[in-house]
C-alpha cells in the first residue's frame, strides 16, 4: 500500500537530506509524486569516472520497501553493468525471487532493510569496480577487459558531457 511506502520514502528523503553521503544527492523529482526520484551521483575518486556528476532516475513500486525500486541513468554511461538504455544491473536491485543472471545468492539481493542510500552507495562502488562477469553491456565489458585506455577515454568524454563542458 502506498501509505506506508510514502512514510518510509519520506523518512529516507529526510535522512538523505540531513545527512547526505558524500557525493550523493537524491530526492523526489516532484513533490506531487514521491515515487519518482532523481539522484545525482558523483564519480568516485581515483577512477575513470572521477569528477563526473551522473543523473539517474529511481522509480519506486507502490509496495516499496517490499519490492526494490528501478534505477536508470538518464545520461549516457558506458559501463559493463549498465544497459545501453541506462538501466542499472546490480544485485541489490533484484527482487529476492527473480534471478535473471543466475549467479547471485539471495543474500546480495533486495530486502526491505536496504535503502536508497545503500543502493546509491552500491552504484558508486559499481562505478569504481565494474563487474565484468555479469555484463549488462557486453561491449563495455569487452572494452573494459581488453582496451582499458579506450574505456577511460570514453569515460572521460562522459564526465565532460555530464558536467556540460
Amino acid at each position: 500500500m502506498a501509505g506506508s511506502a510514502l512514510k518510509r520514502l519520506m523518512a529516507e528523503y529526510k535522512q538523505l537530506t540531513m545527512n547526505p553521503p558524500e557525493g550523493i544527492i537524491a530526492g523526489p523529482v516532484n513533490e506531487e509524486n514521491f515515487f519518482e526520484w532523481e539522484a545525482l551521483i558523483m564519480g568516485p575518486e581515483g577512477t575513470c569516472f572521477e569528477g563526473g556528476v551522473f543523473p539517474a532516475r529511481l522509480t519506486f513500486p507502490p509496495d516499496y520497501p517490499l519490492s526494490p525500486p528501478k534505477m536508470k541513468f538518464t545520461c549516457e554511461l558506458f559501463h559493463p553493468n549498465i544497459y545501453p538504455d541506462g538501466r542499472v544491473c546490480i544485485s541489490i536491485l533484484h527482487a529476492p525471487g527473480d534471478d535473471p543472471m543466475g549467479y547471485e545468492t539471495s543474500a546480495e539481493r533486495w530486502s526491505p532493510v536496504q535503502s536508497v542510500e545503500k543502493i546509491l552507495l552500491s552504484v558508486v562502488s559499481m562505478l569504481a569496480e565494474p563487474n565484468d562477469e555479469s555484463a549488462a553491456n557486453v561491449d563495455a565489458a569487452k572494452t573494459w577487459r581488453e582496451d582499458r585506455s579506450k574505456f577511460n577515454e570514453v569515460a572521460e568524454r562522459t564526465v565532460r558531457k555530464t558536467l556540460g563542458l
Binding site: 537530506t17 540531513m18 556528476v53
Partner: peptide, 26 residues
C-alpha cells in the same frame, strides 16, 4: 542541510543542492 516541512521549499532546496553539486564538480 535541513529538512523543511513545506513541499515547495524542499523542492527548491533540493534543486539548489543539485546545482551546487554540479557547479562544484565543474
Amino acid at each position: 542541510s535541513r529538512f523543511s516541512k513545506s513541499a515547495t521549499e524542499r523542492e527548491t532546496m533540493l534543486q539548489e543542492r543539485k546545482n551546487s553539486m554540479l557547479e562544484q564538480a565543474r
